[in-house]
Structures are given as structure tokens and as C-alpha cells.
């Protein structure tokens, strides 16, 4: 399933967040949205998934979601958004309960996604007992459980320390390699975008517009930190972001 954002503008009160924004999200690839803080990238993601209504413009989905898909547009949130009163498996089951799958059907899906995210041993743990990285893996398992057509990841690794972040990036790459999914991945972290994105869209500061689109050709599994080609991509992204970041920084401190 493909997504298209057409001439979307959005504002919060007097603040214009997005202006005439156009974007194509190709199927089966990870599109990273990167930009300075407050540039409207998270807003854009909420608009794409239908959690907010754009002031003008529209979001289109092309093609039918694959069969067996329970929730075509599925989010992974920065703060995990796990229910503290449900165990790991209870949190995954939450998103399946409304679909009339039956106990056995739910059991099968829960076991499958917990195995894929290597959480099977923690099925009965409470969220409070888990580290941040583990919690985000539960949230990823929950997202996989509904076999989404498009994953919408809102800074999924930003609340984690850098070691955990590296491990989870590897996990995400593994998951994608096993079954390629369509994803929109919002981040402010260059390394994440360069590691995970097939296409990286650099946003300008508020009101957000596309500043640059960088396609990264190298395969996800072959990307490493000392890759010369990847370094060139990172440098290019950084040059594009640098000015925006500096300008955005001045705006915030001047406010």
C-alpha cells in the first residue's frame, strides 16, 4: 500500500506547522522524515495516520491493504504507550481483542510476534519490570500483531540510550529483511535515518517543507558505521540539516 500526502497545510492556533506539503511514501520501503525539533514532522505523522485532521490538503492511500491486515496504519510511539496494568502479552492482546479472532487465533498471533521480537520469555512480565529498550520492543511486537500495511514510527528510539538504540536498529533491520514493510520513520537523529532509511526526507524548520530528498541505494543489511558511501550520505544530510537546525535553535532561544 502506498501513501500520498497532497498539499497539506496545518496550524496550531497562530503557529503554522506545515505549508503545502507533498510527499510520496512508496510501498515496501522505509521513508525517514528528519528535521530540527518543532519542524512539524511528528504532526505530519499524526496527520498521515488519521489521528489529526489537516487544516487543508489531503492524505491518500493507494491500493488495498494486504489481506489479514487488522490495522493498516499502525503507530509505534516514542514513549511506548504501553498499558501499565497489562502484562507484555496482555498489551499485545489489547489490539487483537476487538477483531473476533477467538482465543486460539489470538494466542497464535501473540506467540508469533513475541518470538519475532525475542520477548517470549517475558510474556507475563509487567511493563514496569522492563527496561526502556524492552518496552519499545513490546510496542513493536504490538504493532506487528495487527500486520500493518504501513508502520508509522514516531521517534521510536529517542527515549533510549545510544547502546540500546543501536541494538534496536539492528532488530528493526532484521524484521524488515524477514518481511519488508512500508514505514514512515520520524526522527531527529541522522544516524538512525542513514541506517534505516531507503529514502530520507529532510524537512525545513517551521513551517515544515521538504528541503531535500536523499535516496540511499545500499542494502539495509550491508550498512555499517565505517561505510564510506554511507558517510557521504550522512555528510550530505548534515549539511542540509545544519542550517535549519541552527535557525530553529535561534528561534527557540529568541522566543
Amino acid at each position: 500500500m502506498r501513501l500520498r500526502v497532497e498539499r497539506v497545510s496545518h496550524r496550531y492556533g497562530p503557529t503554522e506547522v506545515l505549508r503545502d506539503f507533498d510527499l510520496d511514501v512508496p510501498a515496501g520501503r522505509i521513508t525517514c522524515l528528519i528535521g530540527p525539533s518543532g519542524c512539524g514532522k511528528s504532526t505530519l505523522l499524526r496527520l498521515i495516520g488519521g489521528l489529526e485532521k489537516p487544516a487543508s490538503g489531503r492524505i491518500l492511500q493507494a491500493g488495498e491493504p494486504p489481506s489479514g491486515c487488522l490495522n493498516p496504519l499502525t503507530y509505534v510511539f516514542q514513549d511506548f504507550a504501553l498499558l501499565p496494568w497489562r502484562t507484555v502479552e496482555g498489551n499485545v492482546r489489547l489490539v487483537l481483542e476487538d477483531h473476533g479472532l477467538g482465543a486460539a487465533g489470538m494466542r497464535r498471533i501473540v506467540d508469533d510476534v513475541l518470538a519475532r521480537t525475542r520477548l517470549s520469555d517475558f510474556a507475563r512480565a509487567w511493563p514496569r519490570q522492563l527496561s526502556g529498550g524492552m518496552r519499545q520492543r513490546v510496542a513493536i511486537a504490538r504493532a506487528l500483531a495487527v500486520s500493518p500495511a504501513v508502520m508509522l514510527l514516531d521517534e521510536p528510539l529517542s527515549a533510549l540510550d545510544s547502546q540500546t538504540r543501536a541494538l534496536l536498529m539492528d532488530d528493526l533491520v532484521d524484521l524488515w529483511l524477514r518481511t519488508p514493510f512500508t514505514a514512515v520513520y520520524v526522527t531527529h537523529n541522522l544516524a538512525e535515518a542513514a541506517r534505516l532509511g531507503h529514502r530520507v526526507v529532510v524537512l525545513s524548520r517551521r513551517p515544515g517543507r521538504i528541503r531535500e530528498i536523499v535516496d540511499i541505494e545500499s542494502a539495509l543489511q550491508s550498512r555499517s558505521d565505517d561505510d564510506a558511501g554511507l558517510k557521504a550520505v550522512r555528510d550530505r544530510l548534515w549539511r542540509a540539516m545544519r542550517e535549519e537546525a541552527m535557525a530553529a535553535d535561534r528561534e527557540l532561544t529568541g522566543a
Partner: peptide, 13 residues
């Protein structure tokens, strides 16, 4: 409220 938004994003009734 983030939990409620989450639930809405998964189309819970």
C-alpha cells in the same frame, strides 16, 4: 491521554 491516542490509533472501539 497518550494511551487513549494509542488505543484510537489501533481502532479500538
Amino acid at each position: 491521554r497518550t494511551l487513549i491516542r494509542m488505543a484510537q490509533s489501533f481502532d479500538l472501539s
